[in-house]
């Protein structure tokens, strides 16, 4: 893998308000392919989303140029966008989480 492409954030469509991490990404300044700079606030792993601009609660999350759900809280540029701050407009997202009591199931915080 070419290292210069690691830690880059990818914008899939011009209208999108989220970027996709192309590898594990640490907080700090990140330069996009078009030269724009984004300061990542949260560490994320491959494939996860980072807000490319401020998103208000209730706004649509846009990826691939289409809505993939709505923000459940205000999201700031550079923050991780996932089940803790967005939800489906169709059916709730199901997740597993490991706790001190062992594996427990719970719904995503988006129902």
């Amino acid at each position: 893998m070419k290292s210069d492409l690691l830690n880059k954030l990818l914008q899939l469509s011009p209208d999108d308000n989220v970027l996709v991490a192309l590898g594990a990404t640490q907080p700090g300044e990140n330069t996009l392919a078009d030269g724009r700079k984004i300061t990542v606030q949260t560490p994320v792993t491959l494939g996860h989303k980072i807000a490319s601009r401020n998103i208000a609660r209730g706004d649509k999350i846009l990826k691939y140029g289409v809505s993939i759900g709505s923000a459940t809280v205000d999201i700031l540029v550079g923050q991780h966008v996932h089940v803790h701050n967005m939800k489906s407009d169709y059916t709730a997202t199901y997740m597993l989480s490991e706790t001190a009591d062992g594996d427990q199931t719970k719904g995503g915080q988006n129902d």
Binding site: V20, A21, V44, T45, L46, G47, H48, K49, I61, K63, V66, S67, I68, G69, V81, H82, V83, M86, K87, S88, D89, Y90, T91, T93, N110
Partner: peptide, 8 residues
């Protein structure tokens, strides 16, 4: 793996 919703 980074997918948040069924739409995504």
């Amino acid at each position: 793996g980074g997918l948040s919703t069924i739409e995504e």
